[in-house]
């Protein structure tokens, strides 16, 4: 055993980790970090799909599995998750001083755009710096540029949008709807993940009373 790291942790002893190791990083032929996927979660039927963060994954199916663990393991409900490769999202500039990004989009934007045939594009808007992007809806277009123009005509309203993310429908893995409802069925059963499940006021009160008597 003397050649292995000794620990108070029985699991670590079972790993048979060499007691001595160098300080250099393990050699790699090439970097092996997976790419990132952006994750969007819809917590309830009447709420918009909202950006929650990222996961690293080799495929979109695994990105979904990681996203489910990371972003829907807590809370009473979840009705859908979308995962999208970071590189598949087209991003507008972010505006200054609360200006509306739609004010900067005009018809000329479509000149010279690379047209790829008619597709559906999903549009996410940022309402305020520091908040998360949320889904406005979809538009039909022949290019990202046309999608921007159509988004202006469809979604621009009184409230300014500071930044837009646009994604082609085919680049989204959607896990939602009745077909997948079972995935989140057990969420309300996991009360042990919730602060509410650990009430102890009574116990402390009783303890204090006993201390006073003694």
């Amino acid at each position: 055993m003397s050649d292995f790291l000794k620990s108070l942790d029985p699991r670590i002893n079972r790993l048979s980790i060499p007691a001595e190791f160098g300080s250099s990083f393990p050699e790699k032929d090439e970097k092996d970090q997976f790419i990132t996927y952006e994750v969007f979660v819809q917590p309830k039927e009447n709420k918009a799909m909202q950006h929650e963060g990222i996961v690293h994954a080799p495929t979109e199916e695994m990105a979904f599995l990681f996203a489910k663990e990371q972003f829907s393991r807590r809370g009473m409900s979840c009705v859908g998750i979308w995962v999208i490769k970071t590189t598949a999202i087209q991003v507008s500039p972010i505006t200054e001083n609360g200006e509306d990004i739609y004010d900067y989009i005009n018809k000329e934007i479509m000149e010279g755009a690379e047209e790829n045939g008619l597709s559906t594009y999903q549009v996410f808007q940022l309402a305020k710096r520091g908040k998360q992007h949320s889904l406005s809806g979809s538009v039909e277009a022949n290019s990202f540029e046309e999608a921007l123009w159509n988004a202006k005509n469809t979604f621009a309203d009184d409230k300014p949008a500071l930044n837009l993310w646009i994604v082609k429908e085919e680049d989204i893995l959607k896990i939602e709807g009745d077909e997948f409802a079972d995935i989140w069925n057990t969420l309300p059963d996991k009360k042990y993940r919730d602060a509410m499940d650990y009430k102890a006021t009574e116990k402390i009160k009783k303890f204090k009373e006993e201390q006073q008597k003694a």
Binding site: P26, K28, K31, D32, Q33, F34, I35, T36, E38, H51, I54, P58, T59, M62, K85, T86, T87, I89, V91, Q132, H133, W165
Partner: peptide
């Protein structure tokens, strides 16, 4: 865990890493 990442990385050939967005 390196062998797991290597095996899975075979599926990601051609995907270029970029910094995440937000």
């Amino acid at each position: 865990g390196a062998w797991v990442r290597r095996a899975l990385a075979a599926k990601t050939k051609g995907d270029k890493y970029v910094a995440p967005m937000a």
